[in-house]
Write a protein that binds this DNA or RNA. Structure first.
Lengths: 346, 346
DNA sequence: ATGAAAGCGCTAACAG
DNA sequence: CTGTTAGCGCTTTCAT
């Protein structure tokens, strides 16, 4: 059907040996081939539509040029796509391809190991392991010894390199944008999950307040599950107070969506009466709420790209991942300014 | 590091030849091996943690067990993830893995061909080609002759097998649910894109009305770009009429989101004063609007799974894709009932 | 400056 | 019932 043309066909067509073909096509440095021969080879290859059989190449060189990508619940979050995209584009630019495997987030440790084993049988040169949200993770044992990097998660055993978002700086810039707009009574809607983001964002909230010389009022932080109904409930409590805050930092965009409804029901206009800022930059929500939500973007694409770059550098011996395992690499979360922030009323 | 254990290590450990190992591990039918030997081989393989080198295997058998997956803009839509998931899970269950490539939707025909070529060099056994929304497509020339199936798009040259959603039946069930609730003045918000979905959904709207003996009123269909602001604008016009419809079928969930705002601004309650039904089942929106939006789901997972199944069947010679190219296979779009539909007021 | 040949890890005739 | 051996398509050492 397709590639019936092999290196020997090219050799025959160019009237040279396969060695020569291999040499010129791979630009082997030490082998010296006549300029005219070079051209003949390139021509023949071109004409026949030759492309090397990457499996044969891999078998011989012990380098598959494939990167395994394990993603938890590929589908559930639109974010996962950005990580894959970052990794794929980066890898491809360097001649690598991505082999993708979905891993159920509910899967057992055994099933995770067999995901890795699958990829290893495929002779991938390295593995990217992405989680659907930032958290700490016990990596499959058989990942040890394989070039690997974790994306959006940290290894509990500190044995594999990882890249995560800078939750604290991101959250601080979110709160700062509220402070800069002139707010001094600022509330926060936080969530109930025991994940790094919860702690980091809350801590950043307090720090930003403190740095601005504002007092932290525990009554102005309301906790609920991190979904739209939770945001609605938390915001309702916050905005119904006589001394309601004039601005609210929401744990994420989904909670902000709920907060919008709470504000609407109380007859509060956004941003004239109350300002909001979210986190995550879930485009579908942030762009489409009215008014559009100012929020903080998670660097999914960048994490994917960074991870792929490091992994490939390690595979090619340009880097030692070992030097990076000590603590996760942290990537910036930029503020995305839209229309939900204004100076406080009055 | 990883798989330094090969078939000959197993052979040595089990005290048999590599042939025997290959035979028992692959359950070769014709080769007859003693039960006790079988066990020894399995034991040894187990003990050494042997897994076959899939590249060597592929090189030898001319079957890579890899499926190439080309996806336009993997990241942009959450939907793409569901297609990948359907394909990946199905493929994996049958011993195949997915090699993924992102193809810019803006890419040239040449770049598409090189995407395919890349995969072909990798010796994939077949290719799945997914678009980010249902449309007609000129497939790369070099896809001809390769087992392939298109997901969510149709081949303009009718030469490759494809699977698409049943827009018409989906839209009809959306409209029907409005009719069943007792509505007789039903409006539609449609869009400006010249894509199959636009035409199918509008046609279905008219057919459903006709079948129910309701008259079609051109004033009750408003056209705008298929995003939230468009939905807002179209719905505003529709609901501001003295003879406003009591129910509205929205081209998609994003437009429905805009329509919700239009209703709110006019002081209309959903669903008491006006019912809405959307299309696409974009969970982030449909589940989180208030009230939650009744809509029609696109069978992304199912299309991915169906495509992978057919492709693998074809690869394994169980099916001839040729028999399916004549027209696309159409998969059902189920109605997802939530809270945005009620009987008309009064 | 170019070619012959070995061998990557595996499967599948073919021999015994 | 089990073992020998020839490649799959390529890279690379070593000869020429």
């Amino acid at each position: 059907m397709n590639k019936s043309v092999g290196i020997k066909d090219v050799a025959a067509a160019a009237g040279v040996s396969v060695t020569t073909v291999s040499h010129v096509l791979n630009d082997v440095s030490y082998a010296r081939v006549g300029a005219e021969t070079r051209e003949r080879v390139h021509d023949a290859a071109q004409r026949l539509g030759y492309g090397p059989n990457r499996m044969a190449q891999a078998l011989r060189t012990q380098r598959s040029g494939m990167i395994g990508f394990i993603s938890e619940e590929i589908a559930t979050t639109p974010h996962a796509g950005r990580i894959i995209l970052g990794a794929e584009e980066t890898a491809r630019a360097r001649g690598y391809n991505i082999m993708i495997i979905n891993s159920a987030i509910t899967g057992s440790q055994d099933s995770r190991e067999s995901d890795v084993a699958d990829l290893l049988d495929r002779q991938v040169d390295g593995i990217l392991y992405a989680t659907m949200y930032h958290r700490r993770l016990a990596v499959p044992k058989n990942l040890a010894g394989v070039p690997a990097v974790l994306v959006d998660s940290e290894d509990t055993s500190q044995t594999v390199c990882s890249v995560i978002p800078d939750e604290v700086r991101g959250a601080r810039s979110a709160v700062q944008t509220l402070i800069d707009a002139g707010h001094s009574r600022i509330g926060m809607i936080t969530n109930t999950d025991d994940v790094p983001a919860t702690h980091s964002r809350l801590r950043a909230f307090k720090e930003a307040l403190a740095d601005a010389g504002l007092v932290f009022d525990g009554n102005l932080v309301q906790t609920e599950p991190s979904e739209v109904p939770g945001g609605y409930a938390a915001a309702s409590r916050l905005l119904d107070r006589p001394d309601r805050p004039t601005a609210v930092f929401c744990y994420n965009d989904r909670m902000a969506m709920g907060a919008y409804r709470a504000a609407a029901e109380l007859g509060l206009r956004i941003p004239q009466d109350v300002s909001f800022v979210g986190f995550d930059n879930q485009q579908l929500i942030a762009e489409n709420l009215y008014p559009a939500l100012t929020t903080v973007a998670l660097p999914h694409y960048e994490m994917g790209a960074w991870a792929a770059t490091q992994l490939i550098d390690a595979i090619e011996g340009k880097t030692d991942l070992g030097s990076l395992v000590a603590r996760p690499t942290i990537l910036d979360c930029p503020l995305v300014v839209r229309d939900s922030v204004a100076p406080p009323p009055g």
